[in-house]
């Protein structure tokens, strides 16, 4: 039992060190002044933003709308009954902007893009494409990891802002059938409840989640050694580890800013 716990702890630390190392190398490459492969790398970043950000707009919009609707209906009908109708905007700000917006967007990005990144890199390993890039002198960090990290971070920031907007405004418009509060008053209350710190926290969380998702999924994809059966195994591990890491980071940031 003790030996197993010790082994798991060592494995966990080794994993964290490997992911951190990959992340730091990608981060360094992001700000490297080297001109090498700039056009090709920019192309990969653009495609990643397109896939992770633009292509995800319908699903993120639909989930944001449904979540906004649920929260606004629940809060809008329950709060007035206990004499707290004036707190509707605050509840929305607390649940959507601070927590659920970044977190649910991260989960959607993990399910869509995290799995895709891990599977793509895993299959590239199996097909010796990664070895071929290495043999051509093409830096795997610069050509494969860094563009995915940059693309996912940019997409995460945009998607989180989009999620918040749709959840707050779209959710209200749909819930309007049941509620009596005018939209003008609702938006003014939201504006009053939102602080600069809330927006800053949302952006910080988006950046951290985007970075974590891309780096962990790249790490697992590149960890495939040679068999195709390893690809789904690594993808499952990547999902589990990214969800855990995002929740852990969410707690740290929330505690850091609001406690």
């Amino acid at each position: 039992m003790i030996a197993r716990t010790g082994r798991k702890t060592v494995e966990g630390l080794e994993f964290a060190a490997a992911v951190l190392d990959l992340g730091l190398r990608a981060f360094r490459e992001l700000f490297s002044p080297a001109r090498r492969g700039r056009g090709e790398v920019f192309g990969v970043i653009t495609r990643q933003i397109l896939f992770t950000g633009v292509d995800a707009l319908p699903v993120v919009g639909a989930i944001a709308l449904m979540l906004g609707l649920i929260i606004i209906i629940q809060a809008g009908t329950t709060l007035p009954q206990v004499g707290a109708g004036a707190f509707l905007a605050k509840i929305i700000e607390l649940t959507v902007v601070r927590e659920l917006g970044p977190l649910l967007t991260a989960f959607i990005v993990i399910w869509r893009s995290g799995t895709a990144i891990c599977t793509e890199l895993g299959n590239m390993q199996v097909g010796q494409e990664i070895a071929a890039l290495d043999a051509m002198g093409i830096s795997l960090i610069r050509f494969l990891v860094m563009p995915r990290v940059a693309g996912v971070i940019v997409a995460m920031i945009c998607l989180t802002i989009y999620f918040d907007f749709i959840a707050i405004v779209g959710g209200f418009l749909v819930a309007k059938v049941h509620l009596t509060i005018p939209i003008q008053v609702y938006l003014e209350e939201i504006e009053e409840a939102l602080s600069a710190a809330d927006i800053l926290v949302t952006v910080i969380k988006s950046v951290l989640f985007g970075f974590t998702i891309a780096v962990i999924c790249c790490h697992h994809g590149l960890s495939v050694v040679g068999a195709t059966t390893e690809v789904p195994q690594q993808t499952t591990r990547a999902m589990l580890n990214t969800v855990t890491a995002c929740l852990f980071l969410d707690i740290i940031v929330s505690v850091g800013f609001y406690l």
Partner: peptide, 13 residues
């Protein structure tokens, strides 16, 4: 400075 052809074609798919 070294060109390498793998046993698998290893073209980027």
């Amino acid at each position: 400075r070294v060109g390498f052809v793998f046993a698998q074609p290893a073209l980027i798919s």
